[in-house]
Simulated scan of single mutants.
Amino acid sequence: MADYQETLDLSSYAALGDSFTEGLNDPGPDGQFAGWADRLAGMLAARRPDSDFRYANLAVRGRLLDQIVAEQVPQVRRIAPDLVTLCAGGNDILRPGSDPDDIAARFEAAVVELREHVDTLLICTGFDTRGVPVFGMLRGKIATYNAHLRAIADRNGCRVADLWSLRAVHDRRAWSEDRLHLSPEGHQRVALLAARALGLAVDDPEAPWPYQPTPSPADLRRENIQWAREFLLPWVGRRLRGESSGDHIEAKRPDLLPL
Rank of each mutant, 00 (worst) to 15 (best):
L94V: 15
R115S: 05
E206Y: 10
F231P: 03
D82C: 06
T85L: 02
G237T: 10
Y145K: 03
R78T: 15
F107E: 01
D204I: 11
R222W: 12
A2C: 14
I142N: 04
G28L: 03
L121E: 08
A161R: 06
V160H: 06
G23Y: 04
L240Y: 10
S245T: 14
R167E: 10
A70W: 03
D247Y: 15
T120W: 02
Q226V: 14
N25P: 08
G31K: 02
L257S: 15
S245C: 15
R159N: 01
G42F: 08
A46T: 03
M43G: 13
A195H: 06
A70D: 12
V112Q: 12
A15M: 04
I249S: 09
L16N: 05
P81E: 04
D171Q: 00
R106F: 11
P96G: 00
D102H: 14
I68V: 11
R155Y: 09
I142R: 14
W235M: 14
R229H: 15
V169T: 07
G62V: 13
M1A: 15
A34E: 06
I225Q: 09
V134I: 02
L182A: 11
R155K: 06
L8M: 05
A153W: 03
F135E: 07
P49L: 13
V236Y: 15
A56N: 03
A2Q: 11
N91L: 00
P100S: 07
S244H: 11
R61P: 12
C124K: 05
V134M: 00
L256D: 10
P74I: 08
D3L: 13
G28M: 03
L166E: 09
G126Q: 12
G89R: 05
Q226D: 02
R63L: 14
I225N: 09
L40P: 03
A15E: 00
I103H: 08
L257V: 15
N156M: 08
L198F: 01
L200H: 07
R47N: 00
A34T: 09
P208V: 08
T125S: 06
L64G: 07
D128R: 02
L163M: 10
R173W: 04
L44N: 00
P184G: 07
D162C: 03
A251L: 05
G28D: 05
E177R: 13
L149Y: 03
L65K: 10
L232E: 01
W227Q: 05
D99H: 10
